[in-house]
Simulated scan of single mutants.
Amino acid sequence: MDQEIVDSVQQWLRDVVVGLNLCPFARKPMRAGQIRYKVSEARDDESLMAELLEEFRLLDNTPVEELETTLLIVPQHLQEFADFNQFLDLAEWLIERQEYTGIYQLATFHPDYQFAGTRPDDAENLTNRTPYPILHLLREASLARALENYPDPESIPANNIRRVEGLSEEQKRLLFPYLFC
């Protein structure tokens, strides 16, 4: 079961994130095998917090050349987007409490992701919609280096919105089959 979950997330990463170039920095660590895909066993916030801390500590103790980033996939908890959003307050508290501010940050993804000020069916929400809830643990130093070498990083969100808005219904069904079940 875990392998099926990882496979679906890897396909999303390959076809959507890299394939549509939603994150211009994802291709390199993906090709280098520097992404950890960890399937969470958590069924409650406390267990997920413990797993999140464990993943931060693994990043602490693993050279960036071996492990750039972690995708903590949460298939059994936080299925409702409102619950997921509430959990993010706890996750940010953990980052502050463990003195990881400026070292790590989270990018977040969910099957029902909805940006503030959008309607549920707005295409721009597709940029953060995944097969499962995901907490993406990023090394801030790596992100800063990548942004330094990227021309006009401020244009990334607008470019992403244009890309997903330009998808046909057939393309959306192919890229996001988990949204059309």
Rank of each mutant, 00 (worst) to 15 (best):
I5Y: 05
Q11S: 11
L13I: 10
R14I: 09
R14G: 01
V16Q: 09
V18D: 06
G19L: 02
L20H: 03
L20Q: 09
N21F: 01
N21I: 08
L22I: 12
C23G: 09
F25I: 07
K28Y: 00
P29E: 15
A32H: 03
G33E: 00
G33Q: 00
K38A: 14
V39N: 07
D45P: 05
D45Q: 09
E46V: 05
S47I: 01
M49N: 13
M49H: 06
A50C: 12
L52V: 12
L53V: 12
E54K: 14
E55C: 14
F56Y: 01
L58Q: 13
L59K: 09
D60A: 02
N61W: 00
N61R: 09
L67N: 02
T69A: 03
L71G: 04
L72H: 06
L72S: 06
I73Y: 05
L78G: 11
E80R: 08
E80M: 04
A82W: 01
D83T: 10
N85M: 07
Q86P: 00
Q86M: 05
F87E: 02
F87T: 01
D89R: 04
A91D: 07
E92C: 00
L94G: 13
I95K: 07
E96V: 00
R97T: 15
Q98P: 05
E99G: 04
E99W: 00
Y100K: 07
G102Q: 09
G102N: 08
I103V: 15
Y104P: 10
L106D: 11
L106N: 09
A107T: 02
P111D: 11
Q114W: 11
F115D: 14
T118P: 05
R119Y: 14
D121F: 11
D122H: 13
A123K: 14
A123I: 12
E124S: 14
N125F: 12
L126I: 12
L126H: 08
N128V: 14
R129K: 15
T130Y: 10
P131Q: 07
P133M: 10
P133G: 12
